[in-house]
Design a protein around this nucleic acid. Structure first.
Lengths: 259, 259
DNA sequence: CGTTTAATTGAGGAAAGTCAAGTGAAGTGG
DNA sequence: CCACTTCACTTGACTTTCCTCAATTAAACG
């Protein structure tokens, strides 16, 4: 079975499990000991589901575009969404990869601040802003949930910035893998195997490297036996010590083989 | 009069003007036509002021440190705060520069995710989390205000990522200046003169360049008559067309003198 | 099985990093 | 108030890394 088939299966099962319950919002709580993962109780999920419509997007299709009138936000139900900022000469900067339980549709003065497209087949809840704001103004706990989720996205954006600021290509890639791993860990993935639903170009546009640099970086990490690729879209961390050394911020010297 | 004296004066006047009213929260609204700048009405500001304490921090002193137990968030009343992630070998990555009306103290599982220190003399409101959460659970409009502010910070973090992802040093610097300018514009600053409360090292750590690269980059921009420095901490944009060309995302070719 | 797309690999050049010296301004003590 | 110290910034020379362009291989799709 190829990766795609497995993803499709996952979509079905997730969709099935949460169909009657309504949207999930997933985040790590900024504050001490509360719920850690799914933020909404059944009643509130049902309530949100009432004002939401379900949209299905084929792999590669756009969801909204930078500058469009922002009349709704979305919550990913299944699949992977990429948000990005297109640039003049056909290039783009990828802002984030979004997984089930993530929300998207950030706007400024009524216009989306970036574009979104489906990296795999995607099913998402669509919340018209008017209706959502109605709900938010009535239910402080629901607001709380959004605050927590926004804190989560903010932390992730800051972590992304940390990756982009890193000097060495191998460190960038290691940190990227670490990020993907923790994202998948909070969603019940395994610890030592990371799957990469996006292609190399997308990785390059996310970490701020050229496509060849990504390829070479992965080659170096593989040659040093820090990671291995069972398949182009699946990574195993072989040498966790070496790996974590690279994910440490900066150091400027962690590119050389640790002896 | 030097720059420092001017800053001190500003601190005094700002502190005086908002002393009796309580904290301000400033943000650009993500949604259409609502309030655009100060988000809180007088009653709510007074209400927040009741649970807050005022902290004064001398220039250069720390406010909290990464990993500390996160028992409060802060709102800048006057001065400039820098948040950063320290790295092993004495380096650091700067996450953001915070101005009056900004909030700080992002945490994960009860611990601050980055460190904060005063770049100028700073006065800030300190909100103990317990009290703040009490207020938030009672007042959905106050939650709304925090949601809007978080959206604002998220957009800024994404804009920061855009700067870090940019390839050319001169573009990074131009984008950085553009960012500072828009921050100061929403706070009533002038359009053509930008002031830089932070030193060059801080700029380097923010845009992801070495200190010499920042120096050289500014030199290039000056030589091309795109900007000018009346003083090391004050920048004027001379050639706005050339400037905006550099702030366009990517292009990979905008480093050469446009003929 | 051939075509198209995605990914790797190679060679050359340019940009920024590093290290180190030099300049200027600010702050300190006599 | 001025000389001196100190810190912030600039400038220079050299090295490294990554980007660019291009060719090649590998995988996906009909």
């Amino acid at each position: 079975l190829t990766f795609h088939v497995q993803i499709s299966l996952e979509i079905c099962s997730v969709a099935f499990a949460s169909q009657s319950l309504g949207p999930i919002v997933r985040a790590i709580d900024p504050w001490p000991p509360r719920r850690r993962n799914e933020l909404l109780n059944g009643r509130r999920r049902a309530c949100l589901a009432k004002v939401a419509s379900l949209v299905c997007v084929r792999k590669g299709d756009g969801i909204f575009h930078e500058g469009d009138f922002a009349d709704a936000i979305y919550s990913v139900k299944s699949g992977v969404v990429t948000t990005y900022v297109p640039s003049a000469n056909g290039g783009r900067h990828i802002v984030s990869f979004l997984y089930p339980g993530d929300i998207l549709g950030l706007s400024e003065a009524g216009r989306y601040t970036n574009s979104a497209k489906a990296t795999t087949g995607v099913v998402a809840y669509r919340f018209p802003l008017a209706a959502l704001r109605g709900l938010l103004s009535e239910d402080a706990d629901l607001d709380s949930c959004f605050i927590i989720k926004l804190c989560d996205e903010l932390r992730q954006a800051q972590r992304h910035a940390l990756i982009l600021a890193e000097g060495r290509a191998v460190s960038k890639l290691a940190m990227f893998l670490g990020l993907q791993q923790s994202l998948q860990a909070t969603r019940g993935g395994t610890d030592s195997e990371i799957c990469l639903p996006m292609d190399r170009t997308a990785i390059a546009d996310f970490v701020g490297l050229s496509l060849p640099a990504v390829s070479r970086g992965f080659a170096v990490l593989t040659a040093r036996h820090i990671i291995s690729f069972p398949d182009r879209r699946r990574v195993k961390i072989v040498d966790r010590t070496g790996f974590e050394l690279l994910t440490r911020v900066d150091d400027r010297n962690n590119h050389r083989p640790a002896d």
